[in-house]
Simulated assay, not measured.
Amino acid sequence: MFRDALDVDHATWARGRGWALSMAVIQLPYYRATNPVISANARHVIRETLAAAGTP
């Protein structure tokens, strides 16, 4: 697993997850009409980040 290879603690992983989520939330409305690739990736990141929020 990617996280195991990084060998980071829970707080570091949570900060990284929060950063990814914040970037995706900003990108989605900005690129929704102009860049379907970036907006699709933003939706993917949001789904995956929220799905993983309950796992340490």
Rank of each mutant, 00 (worst) to 15 (best):
I26V: 09
G18L: 03
L28C: 05
A14Q: 11
D7N: 13
M23R: 15
L28N: 07
W19L: 11
Y30T: 13
S39T: 11
A40H: 10
T12P: 00
Y30M: 08
Y31R: 06
T34I: 11
D9R: 09
S22E: 12
L50D: 00
R17Y: 01
H10G: 07
A40F: 05
I38A: 08
T49Q: 13
N41H: 14
T34L: 06
Q27C: 10
V45P: 00
A14S: 14
A20T: 07
Y31D: 10
R17I: 00
V45C: 02
A24L: 14
D4K: 05
R15E: 06
A5M: 11
N41Q: 15
A20C: 12
W19N: 05
R15T: 06
D4T: 12
H44F: 14
Y30E: 07
A42E: 09
L6V: 11
W19E: 14
N35I: 04
T49V: 13
P56S: 04
I46G: 05
P56R: 00
A33N: 09
G54Y: 01
I38H: 01
I46F: 01
A33C: 00
S39M: 11
A33Y: 07
R43M: 15
H44G: 01
V8Q: 10
M23L: 13
E48D: 06
W19T: 14
R32V: 10
W13F: 14
F2K: 15
A5T: 13
P29L: 09
N41P: 05
I38D: 03
L6T: 10
D7G: 10
A14Y: 06
I38W: 01
W13Q: 05
D4N: 09
V25M: 08
A51V: 03
A52N: 07
A24Q: 15
N41M: 15
A5Q: 13
H10K: 15
A11N: 10
A51T: 02
L21W: 04
I38S: 06
L6H: 06
R17W: 01
A51G: 07
A52T: 03
A5G: 11
F2V: 13
W13C: 04
Q27W: 14
A11K: 06
T55E: 10
L50P: 00
W13V: 09
I26K: 02
T49W: 05
G18I: 00
L6M: 15
N35M: 10
R43P: 00
E48S: 08
G16P: 02
W13Y: 13
D4Y: 06
T55C: 02
